[in-house]
């Protein structure tokens, strides 16, 4: 099978952009966390792509490492969410936002 590597990276870019839009436009922190997951996933895909381009296992190794990063981030993020939920009652980032930008 052949896939032009550019097309693969277009997919990465699309996913990353969708994630960014979600991160910037959603108000609910849970959705922002999901958007961030999509972005990290785009990064993971990029390494798989590059790895398969060079026929090396290194890409997949990095993928596994990214997996552990994502797991740790999600764990921390959700823990924070639980704590925030207790403080505020819901997850609206605007209610969080009492600090001036």
């Amino acid at each position: 099978m052949t896939v032009p590597i550019e097309h693969g990276f277009v997919l990465v870019a699309l996913l990353w952009a969708i994630g960014l839009v979600g991160l910037l436009s959603r108000k609910n922190t849970l959705f922002m966390l999901m958007s961030m997951e999509i972005m990290l996933n785009a990064g993971a895909l990029a390494f798989i792509l590059a790895g398969s381009l060079w026929q090396q296992a290194d890409g997949q190794v990095i993928y596994i490492l990214i997996l552990s990063i994502a797991a740790a981030e999600v764990g921390l993020g959700l823990a924070l969410l639980i704590r925030l939920r207790q403080h505020i009652g819901d997850l609206d980032i605007d209610k969080l936002d009492e600090m001036k930008g």
């Binding site: 052949t2 896939v3 032009p4 550019e6 790895g51 398969s52 381009l53 296992a57 190794v61 596994i64």
Partner: peptide, 18 residues
């Protein structure tokens, strides 16, 4: 050559590298 010929990189290769 920006087109890749996909070949399998199996779990064994990944594992031994990891």
């Amino acid at each position: 050559s920006s087109v890749t010929q996909i070949e399998l990189v199996d779990a064994r290769a990944v594992g031994s590298l990891l």
